[in-house]
Design a protein around this nucleic acid. Structure first.
Length: 861
RNA sequence: GGGGGAGUGGCGAAACCGGCAGACGCAGCGGACUUAAAAUCCGCAGCCCGCAAGGGCGUGGGGGUUCGAGUCCCCCCUUCCCCA
């Protein structure tokens, strides 16, 4: 056996040994080998969608992070659940299949095989016996089963909702396939068109989804995004009579106190009142409604610099004014900055105190009335500024003189007395459009009976398997592809002819409960056993990109809460701690016109970069990794060149896990050199011995001289490595270990076996292959995967002499070495001496002493 | 448009509670070893002035609080990510 560090030989050997020994297999309660005395730790990655292009190093950084945590917890004696699986259903997989002409099931099999191979090569300590695939019938059987529970609870319903329709492509498109009202592929115009869809009543959980955020150990930024998304607002619902009709126009406002300032009303183009337009205005209103249909919500609200709208010819009565008061008769307009999906699809416009209403009123010459006076000093309507803040009510009859908060309450009281309004809380959150007219997803376990009833398939008839379809492309008429699988669709229920529901669930469905299946992945009688969930739940640490800050995490919490209400899980939240790893960016190159140039067309000339073909100068910039820029780094290549341990150390060393940071191939060599040095400190490459002679036996020598110094450095290193786990800034752990190696390099012969063992143990989460190899060479027959994790020894963490910085007037002027715990007077005297010339001819006014750190001598001015 | 981050050497970064700014690494420079190179080892290294000793400046910009600010407060600039 060669004694030179050779990751290509060591790493596959250890990976095989871990697999053969089932080192990372985790026992469930009740299983053989389960130790109930140990604490549990569930560390979960956001499982990947197995794309055709495989993993890149950006994915790996999160997986390496969780692996470091999992390995360390295991070494500390925890029962660690650390699983991996595939989020395989959904649009991207289907599109990939269409593009490559391969069946989605087949593409998924090939892609997951590639992902699994890549992950194993990195040396990640997953319990692969728990692997799951959301597109596997044995998994989606339970996705359907959970859907049934939602359906039974009345949380799933069908409704006509507007969906994106592309006339050119003859298909329904998902939101994510439509950009600014045009199809992502082909750039064809799309319109919103009502279609019957399955909806999930997530709004029923809005309040709990909001309030339960408080108890979670999540990044504040994610909580803010979720709160924003749920968008709770408290206000009032107010009814306006519509002149000449029996219709009531209902609006929601957060500012009922400004009701006296409402000078017009606006309804969304989709509002039912639009149909009541008077004959004289019908043509213009219809033309306007048609033009609004092609705009996205963004174009209608945020992007619209210029407000548009038309008068409907209708008038509403503001209920707070007496009959006959001209202020009470206000025109109703239709404008697309009001959305039908938010609130009631209609608003009362108070242009004096709402910027969009102000803009609209200004443009169309509508009345503007001030009803809130700001505190003195603030700009008000008199200054030509639309004041949106809180102040004092004016021109508002019974509200006059009240502060905004009191005015709101008083207004609601008055509305309730007259029966024309009430207090109401609304949420921006809308029910979740849960069906897709697509092939690659979970079929709904529902039957439409001949007599018109819709019923759920019996539990024991699950799964409703997705039928094989040679042609699975979206249908040209907007109907679901599954509708074409006639044989599959036609069925019966208790002898009555029935048709299966032909929609499929969206890509999110499978990821709404997968952390639960990991707890008990092979259970064929129930989605998970109570005992397994009781023990493993909730997830202790969940790591993934911030990209899923809203959708996935909200949907997952929603399902979990429903399951909690059903008594199927014992916690109301699934993920106790959430952590977002940062993005790995990469270099890309830009020509003079700003166009990006693929990396393989770029050549480095000294410090400059030029285009290979033309020699044109290019600028190096940092962007995210993208196939089109050819700047994607595949971990396979890094492992082939430097080894998995180097990849892991480099990814840890780049910066804090949470930070976004650029991949720089040049820097990898530093991580490799570090591992080389560690190796050589333990193994002599020129000898056939497993370890260097000083490490062969643990000489029971007194810790003195160099060995004692190494002991101090080692203990400081252990403490710093421990510390790095708090915020996942493993870069400082690697730096600490590098410093230790630097210290050791000066006195390698004083390194003892006991010290070497402890160092190898703390190295193990980061470079597990090398660590196990050295551990074995040091004479340990078992893998170090289960510890022990060393603890720093307190007496070696402190020095007896400390350096105190001496400042004069806040500037560093010297240092003094004093015994630890020396009295201030002694330190001050030493400091005055050290400051020497800086104090000449000056008097010290006072001294600020920071114990153990510095002393600042402040001069008399 | 809204929301969330981030700005520290040539580069990635470090700095616990406000207390030596730049640890650790890359690239660079000098040296040792070598016929030579690679690898390895030792050393230098924020910027400016200075032969040096030494001094001044310095954490995107401007102000403030403090004995003391990369860190706290206010304003501004740049940049990345997310959402619709």
């Amino acid at each position: 056996m060669s004694n030179v560090y050779d990751p290509a030989a060591i790493e596959p050997r250890w990976q095989a040994a871990w697999e053969a020994g089932q080192v990372f297999r985790t026992a469930n309660p009740g299983d053989a080998g389960f130790d109930p005395a140990q604490p549990k730790y569930y560390v979960l990655d956001m499982f990947p969608y197995p794309s055709g292009s495989g993993l890149h190093v950006g994915h790996a950084v999160g997986y390496v992070g969780t692996d470091i945590v999992a390995r360390r917890k295991r070494m500390e004696g925890c029962n660690v659940l650390h699983p991996m699986g595939w989020d395989a259903f959904g649009l991207p997989a289907e599109q990939y299949a269409i593009q490559t002409g391969v069946q989605p099931a087949e593409a998924t099999r090939a892609n997951t095989a590639n992902f699994r191979r890549q992950l194993k090569k990195i040396g990640l300590s997953y319990d692969w016996s728990r692997e799951i695939d959301t597109s596997d019938p044995s998994y989606y059987r339970w996705t359907q089963w959970i859907f049934k529970r939602l359906y039974e609870k009345g949380l799933a319903y069908q409704a006509e909702v507007p969906v994106w329709w592309c006339e050119e492509l003859k298909t329904v498109l998902a939101n994510e396939e439509v950009i600014n009202g045009r199809s992502e592929r082909g750039n064809h115009p799309c319109v919103r068109r009502p279609l019957k869809q399955w909806m999930l009543r997530i709004t029923a959980y809005a309040e709990r989804l909001l309030s339960d955020l408080d108890g979670l150990d999540w990044p504040e930024s994610i909580k803010i995004q979720q709160r924003e998304w749920i968008g709770k607002s408290e206000g009032a619902e107010i009814e306006f009579e519509v002149e000449g009709t029996t219709e009531k126009l209902v609006v929601f406002t957060t500012r009922p106190d400004t009701l006296w300032g409402a000078t017009f009303m606006v309804v969304a183009p989709e509002h039912k009142l639009v149909a009541k337009t008077s004959a004289s205005h019908r043509a213009s209103v219809e033309a306007y409604v048609a033009s609004a249909a092609s705009k996205s919500e963004l174009e209608r609200t945020e992007l619209a610099k210029d407000k548009s709208g038309v008068f409907t010819g209708l008038f509403a009565r503001n209920p707070v004014f007496e009959a006959g008061d001209p202020r009470g008769r206000i025109p109703i307009w239709v404008a697309d900055y009001v959305l039908i999906s938010y609130g009631t699809g209609a608003i009362m416009s108070v242009p004096g105190h709402d910027p969009r209403d102000f803009e609209f009123a200004t443009k169309f010459g509508l009345g503007i009335r001030e009803v809130v006076k700001p505190a003195t000093g603030e700009k008000s309507l008199a200054d030509g500024v639309c004041f949106t803040g809180e102040g004092t009510a004016v021109n508002s009859g019974p509200l006059d003189g009240l502060a905004t908060r009191a005015a709101k309450a008083r207004a609601i009281e008055l509305l309730e007395q007259r029966g024309v309004g009430k207090a109401r809380t609304t949420y921006k959150l809308r029910d979740w459009l849960f069906s897709r007219q697509r092939y690659w997803g979970e079929p709904f376990p529902l039957l439409h009976l001949e007599d018109g009833r819709t019923i759920a398939v019996e539990d024991d008839a699950l799964p409703v398997k997705l039928p094989f379809m040679q042609d699975f492309k979206p249908s040209g008429d907007g109907s679901a592809p599954l509708a074409r699988a006639e044989e599959w669709v036609r069925t019966s229920y208790n002898g009555m002819p029935a048709r299966r529901d032909t929609d499929t669930m969206p890509g999110w469905a499978g990821s709404c409960w997968y952390w639960l299946r990991f707890m008990d992945p092979h259970n064929s009688g129930e989605p998970w056993s109570k005992a397994a969930e009781q023990y493993w739940g909730p997830v202790d640490l969940y790591v993934g990109g911030a990209a899923h800050a809203v959708m996935h995490l909200l949907y997952a919490r929603f399902w979990h809460k429903v399951l909690f209400d059903l008594g199927l899980v014992h916690t109301s939240e699934p993920f106790q701690r959430l952590f977002n790893q940062g993005l790995i960016t990469a270099f890309a190159y830009q020509d003079a016109s700003g166009r990006l140039v693929a990396s393989d067309e770029v050549e480095a000339r000294g410090a400059e970069f030029v285009r290979k073909a033309s020699g044109a100068p290019l600028q190096q910039i940092v962007t995210k990794m993208a196939k089109s820029l050819k700047n994607v780094v595949n971990p396979d290549d890094v492992i082939a060149e430097q080894g998995a341990d180097t990849l892991r150390v480099y990814e840890s060393f780049m910066g804090p896990l949470a930070d976004s940071k650029p991949w720089n191939p040049r820097d990898i060599t530093g991580s490799r050199r570090f591992l080389d040095r560690v190796w050589r400190l333990v193994v002599d490459p020129d000898s056939a011995d497993p370890v260097r002679p000083n490490l062969r036996v643990d000489q029971q020598r007194e810790l003195a001289g160099d060995t004692e110094e190494i002991e101090r450095a080692l203990n400081r290193t252990i403490a710093r490595v421990d510390d790095s786990f708090k915020a996942f800034n493993f870069n400082t752990a690697i730096a600490a270990m590098m410093e230790f190696v630097n210290v050791l390099s000066k006195k390698p012969a004083a390194f003892t076996r006991g010290q070497a063992e402890r160092f190898v143990l703390i190295l193990a989460p980061f470079a597990p292959h090398m660590a196990d190899e050295l551990w074995r060479r040091l004479g340990n027959p078992e893998s170090l995967a289960h510890g022990p994790w060393p603890k720093p020894i307190a007496k070696y963490l402190e020095d007896d002499v400390v350096d105190i910085v001496v400042q004069v007037a806040g500037k560093m002027r010297g240092k003094v070495s004093v015994p630890k715990g020396a009295p201030q007077a002694e330190i001050e005297a030493a400091a005055r001496e050290a400051a020497g010339a800086w104090l000449e001819g000056k008097a010290v006014a006072k001294a600020v002493y920071v114990p153990g750190r510095l002393i600042n001598l402040i001069l008399k001015s």
